[in-house]
Simulated assay, not measured.
Amino acid sequence: MELLPSLPAFVLAVILISASPGPAMALILRRAAVRGLSGAVPTVLGLEAGLYVWALCAAAGLAALVAASEVAFVVLRVAGAAFLLYLGVKAWRSAWRSRRTGAAAQPEEEPPAASARSWWKAFGEGAVVMLANPKAAAFMIAFYPQFVPHDRPLLATTALLALLQVALETVLYLSLAAVVGRAGAWFRRPVVRRRLDAVSGTVLVALGLRVAAESR
Rank of each mutant, 00 (worst) to 15 (best):
S38W: 15
G50V: 10
A212T: 12
P111G: 03
R189P: 11
I141C: 06
G184W: 05
A82W: 06
A19R: 02
W92N: 01
V78S: 00
A95S: 05
L16P: 11
S215Q: 15
L163D: 11
A55D: 05
I15T: 08
S175E: 03
E108S: 12
P5M: 05
V129N: 05
A24T: 13
Y173M: 11
F147H: 02
F10E: 07
V180C: 02
V148Y: 01
P134F: 03
E169T: 13
A81D: 07
P149E: 02
W186A: 12
L174F: 04
L154T: 15
I17W: 14
W120D: 08
V180I: 13
W119C: 06
A68H: 12
V89A: 07
L163Q: 15
A136Q: 14
W186R: 07
W120S: 08
R195C: 10
P134I: 05
E2K: 14
L196P: 12
Q165V: 06
I28F: 04
S6D: 09
W186K: 06
P21N: 00
L176K: 01
V199L: 01
A183M: 11
A212S: 07
A59M: 01
T170D: 07
A64W: 13
E109F: 13
A142P: 10
A60I: 10
R188D: 13
A213M: 14
L172E: 07
F83P: 13
A19G: 14
R193C: 14
L176S: 10
F139Q: 11
L196R: 04
P145C: 02
P190Y: 04
P112G: 03
A59F: 04
A64S: 15
L85I: 15
A162C: 11
A213D: 08
S115V: 09
P107E: 07
R195L: 14
A24V: 11
A206K: 04
R182K: 07
V179F: 06
R188C: 12
Q165P: 08
L161G: 02
F83I: 13
A58N: 03
V203K: 01
L27R: 02
G208R: 00
